[in-house]
């Protein structure tokens, strides 16, 4: 049972404190488990602070996303293989990701949010960021993929030739 008015203080990895409603934290498996582990009485308000291994700036973004998704159904529905798709990101989420300023910052922020969503066990946010990253890759050339994902080619020419030969089993 979740008490909407109950608030939780989160302390970030860089020493900041943020107080949020249980309506938001109920979407985080990590925070909910931490609260359960405190074994507090339902009426014990305020709760002790929960330490999260996420920096303040990233946590603010996570809270912004949680605020928009506070009424999402729980538990987050598990997707079967056939239900998994990348073209169904809600418009608000698309705008949320796109507003991160420069190209470099966007990628950096996306990775930070992914890591935070993983640490805080927020399945809906992980799912959305996964689709966002997949959409960045799909349909791109090898060079574009390296640029987007900031990857350095560490193959020798011979190794590349061998992989191309294997890939040649598949033709459009």
């Amino acid at each position: 049972r979740i008490y909407p008015l109950m608030r939780v203080t989160l302390t970030t990895s860089d020493g900041a404190s943020v107080t949020v409603s249980r309506q938001l934290t109920k979407h985080s498996g990590f925070i909910e488990k931490a609260i359960t582990d405190m074994a507090v009485d339902d009426n014990a308000v305020p709760l002790s602070a929960v330490a999260v291994d996420v920096d303040d700036a990233t946590l603010k973004l996570v809270i912004e996303w949680l605020t928009e998704h506070r009424d999402d159904a729980l538990p987050y529905p598990e997707k079967t293989d056939e239900e998994r798709r990348a073209d169904d990101i809600p418009a608000w989420d698309q705008a949320f990701v796109q507003k991160w300023d420069t190209k470099e910052d966007q990628q950096q922020t996306l990775y930070a949010v992914i890591t935070a969503a993983d640490k805080l066990d927020i399945k809906g946010l992980l799912d959305m960021t996964c689709k966002t990253l997949a959409n960045k890759i799909n349909g791109k050339t090898v060079e574009e993929m390296r640029e987007i994902l900031q990857l350095e080619c560490d193959f020798t020419e011979e190794e590349l030739a061998e992989i191309r030969k294997e890939n040649a089993w598949c033709e459009n």
Partner: peptide, 15 residues
């Protein structure tokens, strides 16, 4: 699991 087959093949060539 969200990447198309043809893009999997291209990803093999990145690193």
């Amino acid at each position: 699991k969200h990447v198309d087959i043809i893009d999997r093949l291209r990803l093999r060539l990145t690193c």
